[in-house]
Design a protein around this nucleic acid. Structure first.
Lengths: 226, 226
DNA sequence: CAGTGGTCTAGACCACTCT
DNA sequence: GAGTGGTCTAGACCACTGG
């Protein structure tokens, strides 16, 4: 008479167990939980899968097994900071793509020893002669473009959605492929409307929040009411 | 010698098959694919699961089975529109929560005959006497609060992340539980800093993009370089 | 009623990693 | 070497939906 799937019952029980354990506590092995709950390992795994996707558990191959994920590790990243370029990063790759006409600047965003995002920016090489040699990787990319190439940026209209991590991105973020991520993209123009850069940021949804800012609105969009 | 899992090989093949089929084309049954690829149904299902999560396939219970999902169905929703209250919606529920002191206004956001999001707003009943009787559901909630209760809103700092759909939300969005969704939240204050509303929007990541706006920045955040 | 996806089982083998 | 998670199999039963 239970319309509730067994794996979901397991998930609920595991969540209870989980919430009482301190961070990084080793979790019982899957086979043990299966026997304990009287379910097959497959069913237990389905429950564990979801908890891992939600960032509540961490699984590692080999002997160490599953453990309670460190909580309160959600980092707040502002949209402005993403656009300006992040202060903390681990690596920057500048590479030319295709017929030497596209420059790709890729950086890994790190917070608290964890990679939590990847930022990838594409520029036209013809627009920025000598970029690879001149670029100072310790500074903001946006500031560099403004200072060195006298770019004056116009307004931005970034957009944001969810995606599943590709194998490459998953490797960079230390998560499994198909992990849900937050994807933020924008196309930057200068103040005259000339395209300047195309950027794309992928954030680990379980480790990062994107914060935005909306100015005071004393007016409201008027609607034509039928 | 193949480090590539069989389910991922299956996914790649299915993706090829998929990309050549028109929208809404019925897909072969799982048991048939299993025999065709020489894999177990479980393995095929793991591949199909990811394709469904990515919004490339649609599964329905019963006789109709799996089909190619309609593409190019991504709706762009602006952050401003979310905050103002959506123009298109299917249903609004006003209910009191707990000891009659919290009002919850919940609406389903519909685009092109599909539910793509849920917006839930919480208000303090004591702050808005007679709300349930007075509220005109055809108008913007925000506008209603401004007109009827003379609320003057201050600036907002919404935040955004990914989440997995709970069973309740999944039911409202017509997706499976644990489907990745885009979660946008904010706390609205009036211009003096008094809390007014607490809102939460969940969007189907495979059907909706959130668009934002960033004004021109002639200045760049200065960093203290060590 | 027949066929579909949704769930579940019991078992197997592998790669990895700690001891 | 022992134990972990990652993958995979073959089979089963169920709920649902169309003809």
């Amino acid at each position: 008479m239970s319309a509730i799937p067994r794996y979901y019952q397991a998930k609920t029980k595991l969540l209870d167990l989980l919430s009482e354990l301190p961070d990084n506590t080793p979790f019982p092995p899957e086979r043990e939980l299966a026997e304990l709950f009287g379910m097959s390992r497959t069913t237990i795994r389905k429950a564990l899968d979801e908890l891992v996707l939600e960032g509540k558990l961490i699984r590692k191959a080999g002997r160490q097994g599953t453990a309670v994920a460190p909580r309160k590790q959600v980092h707040r990243l502002s949209l402005d900071a993403l656009v300006q370029d992040l202060a903390t990063r681990e690596s920057i790759v500048v590479r030319t793509v295709g017929a030497q006409d596209v420059i790709n600047v890729e950086s890994v965003l790190v917070r608290g020893d964890e990679p939590i995002g990847v930022r990838s920016t594409y520029l036209r090489a013809s627009q920025f002669p000598g970029f690879a040699e001149l670029y100072d990787r310790s500074a903001s990319l946006r500031k560099f473009l403004m200072d060195r190439y006298k770019i004056r940026f116009g307004e931005l209209h970034p957009w944001c959605t969810t995606a599943l991590a590709t194998p490459r991105i998953a490797g960079m973020l230390d998560v499994r492929p198909a992990t849900p991520v937050l994807s933020v993209s924008w196309m930057a123009h200068d103040f005259r409307g000339v395209p300047v850069e195309r950027s794309w940021v992928v954030l680990r949804g379980d480790r990062a929040h994107l914060t935005m800012h909306l100015p005071r609105t004393d007016h409201v969009v008027r609607r034509s009411t039928a």
